Amino acid sequence: MGKPRHYAWGGESFIPSLIGRDNPGNKPFAEWWLGAHPDDSSLVVVDGNHQSLLDWLKIHNEVQDEEERQGEFPLPFLMKILDVEHMLAIQVHPTKAQAEEGFIRQDKLGIGRTAPERTYRDRNDKPEMMVALTPCWLAHGFATRATIISRFALYATFNQLSDQMQLFGIEAAFERLMKMPQCQVNELLGEVVDIHRYPYSRCELNQQLPEYWVCRAVLDQRSGYDRGLLAMLMMNIVHIPVGQGIYQGAGVPHAYLAGQNIEIMSNSDNVVRIGPTKLHVDLDEALRLIDYQEVVPKILHPEGGQESIRQYSHGGTAAFRLQ
């Protein structure tokens, strides 16, 4: 039996329907964790009683191989179901070495492992792969320098940033965006939203454009002029059809924007956020971890082709049920 996570960006019906649970209070069900992470271990039934899977594996280590016995946690992976009703924060995950160093550093600072301001909750890296259960959208890695310059060129307030991109590249421009005063952030995002407000309201703005998602966050989701939204103007916007997926390694900035998916990753909850979010943001650490290389997104396809995807349709929307 998995464990739900009630983050504000989650939907109210997909996961409850999936797991056969009522949601009379209309809580946001953002994630359903299936694994043995100490923050939210799944449960198993033993002699008619529920027991933590984490505790059960510690007792029954004969089911593990030698490598798993030597790991920090007895299960090396964590699986999740995600329902992205509102966009997640732009975020990045550490390498194993970075996670080890960050975990020890925050322990020495006396930050509790479950404290809201804690960034490193375990010693693991967090490479992750997702497969779309419904059509999904995400921001994934930096677009090419030429693409970013062409986007900046659309806005008068981005002139200096466009010049900086051409002279110094992605890293310098991104760090300037992330560290500029809030009044400048407001000016830049204000121009973007003002230009695209009308076509967005008429459903005439293409979802492949980062401006669509900026307008959605500001106008519909009331995120405010958060500097994390500026990051999307430098990133690839990717559509993942049902049954296809994508891999996101250490250092790749990314954010799920919409849709439901299944994710599998190493057993970690190390998330370094930029924004927009009400959760803890560690901008300096994110800037240190980010891989500033241009990324061409690689969509993963099922080996058997689309015909191998088993889909149950109801009202035109794919639906799945866990057994």
Results as ranks from 00 to 15, higher is better:
165 M>V: 04
166 Q>P: 01
166 Q>L: 15
167 L>M: 14
167 L>Y: 04
168 F>S: 15
168 F>R: 14
170 I>F: 10
173 A>V: 12
173 A>H: 03
174 F>Q: 04
174 F>L: 13
174 F>R: 01
175 E>C: 12
176 R>L: 12
177 L>N: 09
177 L>D: 00
178 M>V: 12
178 M>R: 03
178 M>A: 15
179 K>H: 07
181 P>A: 13
182 Q>I: 06
183 C>T: 07
183 C>W: 04
184 Q>M: 13
186 N>S: 09
186 N>R: 09
188 L>S: 08
190 G>F: 07
190 G>Y: 08
191 E>A: 04
191 E>W: 06
193 V>N: 05
193 V>K: 05
193 V>D: 04
193 V>C: 06
194 D>Q: 14
195 I>M: 13
195 I>C: 03
196 H>N: 15
197 R>G: 00
197 R>F: 04
198 Y>I: 14
198 Y>S: 13
199 P>K: 10
202 R>Y: 01
204 E>P: 00
205 L>N: 10
205 L>T: 07
207 Q>L: 13
208 Q>K: 12
209 L>C: 06
210 P>N: 03
212 Y>F: 15
212 Y>C: 04
212 Y>V: 01
213 W>K: 08
213 W>S: 07
213 W>Q: 09
214 V>W: 08
215 C>R: 05
216 R>Y: 05
216 R>A: 09
219 L>E: 14
220 D>Q: 09
220 D>S: 12
220 D>G: 03
221 Q>A: 09
222 R>W: 02
223 S>C: 10
223 S>G: 02
224 G>S: 03
226 D>W: 06
227 R>M: 13
228 G>V: 12
230 L>S: 06
230 L>C: 06
